[in-house]
Amino acid sequence: MKSLVTALTAFVLLFSSGLSAGHVFAAPAKLYTNAKGAALIDVESGRILYSARGNERMRIASLTKIMTAIVTIEHGNLSEAVKTSRRAAGKEGSSIYLKLGEEMSLHNMLYGLMLRSGNDAATAIAEHVGGTEEGFVFLMNQKAEELGLDQTHFMNPHGLDHDEHYSSPNDMARLTAYALRNPTFREIVKTKVKSAPNPNEAWDYKWYNKNKMLSMYEGADGVKTGYTKLAFRCLVSSATRDGQQLAAVTLNDGDDWNDHRKMLDWGFAHYPLETVIKKGQKLTTVAARTAFRYPLAQGEKSRLTAKLVRRPAQDVRYTLGDAGVINISLDGKLIGSIPVKALAAAPSNTSAKPDPDRSSSEPEDIEIGSSSDSWINAVRAVFGVLFGRKEAA
């Protein structure tokens, strides 16, 4: 009787602690901004965590230069010297004050582009990398199509207003997440101050980053400011905390610095990046070749499912260690895939064996665990005591 009372007490305490720990799942607190459109993305996974009018086409001003920079990095030789044309030197708007015929390395010009938002730098870069400004814009739109940015179209490399030049908050978030995976881009946009040789004066150029978030927000590491009379204030910022990087986008926002702090705080608080599968983790008769991490709100981890899609044993790739993939879904929607390798022998606690005749189109459900597993297992143990049933070790 005493053990029964003890078990019942334990169950009540366990149940109440389980509820307080979040096993009654609640949606994250509402987030509001002053922006016409906004989006927040987890950079590693590409998951959009927040979106307000996220797929609506809007003017993006100098946020355009995010695409200009990544296209330049991918297509250009950064050590080459760029010569400033008359068209570039005379470009209106924000400038790094390049003079006609002035030469500067493509790499340094990218700093002038991203830190000071130089429209003259954007034009000079475009003409150098694309042959003409129009040729470079073709590359920009080609990249947008490659990335699936369906609400995006460019007419120039700098972002001066044009009715056919636009993007959406979600597209800008996805573009930023892509660009931030490039180490050169990442290094440029987190730089607060940059010096570069000045062939026209006795002193070097010294460019201070216009992005105040780099000094205002803990962990801030990018990305770009923007403004025109029609687009109004636009901002993309990024920050990294505890190994997780988020990027926030606001378009037409009169209080963007405060809104970005609020958005980033909200994302880090409600969608921490969690390791769903570890590299080398054994799952039935296979092991994960890479880790899989994903930002998950409270309660979402228990709603993950995974299916193993094996390669047939006679497939030469299977013999080389490529046993197939694990497809991971949240609420039935695919969120990622990781490759797996076959184990030398099946684990002793399973009788599963690779079937030489198995088709790769026959996925198998596998257990990847959830944040509530330990709680559920503890409840089962209490019931085992209550009703005289022993759980398997």
Rank of each mutant, 00 (worst) to 15 (best):
P295R: 02
V309A: 09
G280I: 10
A352D: 14
A239W: 00
K341F: 11
A10H: 02
R116M: 01
P183D: 02
E364Y: 09
K91W: 09
A126V: 04
F387M: 01
N55I: 00
G37H: 02
S360H: 11
R261E: 10
D242S: 15
W203I: 10
C234H: 01
V5E: 05
R181P: 14
G280A: 09
V43F: 07
Q151F: 02
D373K: 03
V249H: 01
V137C: 03
L19C: 07
S215A: 13
P197N: 11
P272A: 02
T152R: 00
T285G: 10
L320H: 14
R174Q: 11
V236D: 00
S372Y: 11
E218V: 02
S94T: 15
G254F: 07
L246K: 06
D221H: 01
M172N: 06
K206S: 03
L106A: 09
N327G: 09
T33R: 09
L235P: 11
A306H: 01
F25E: 07
P199I: 08
N77C: 06
N156S: 15
S45V: 12
R47K: 13
V340Y: 05
S359K: 08
G46I: 13
T72I: 03
S370A: 15
G321D: 11
G254H: 07
S167G: 06
N141H: 06
H162G: 15
A10L: 06
I277R: 01
K210P: 02
T305K: 14
F154V: 05
A220F: 03
S168D: 08
S329Q: 13
P199D: 15
S3M: 10
S329I: 14
G321C: 13
K229Y: 12
F25G: 03
M58A: 15
V309F: 12
G101H: 00
N156Q: 09
Y271W: 15
V385E: 01
M213E: 15
H260F: 04
M1Q: 13
T350M: 14
V379G: 05
V193A: 11
R86P: 07
A122G: 08
D256G: 08
N327L: 12
K282M: 10
C234R: 00
M155A: 15
S361P: 00
I41K: 04
S360I: 00
D322A: 07
A88R: 00
A179T: 03
M172A: 03
V325T: 08
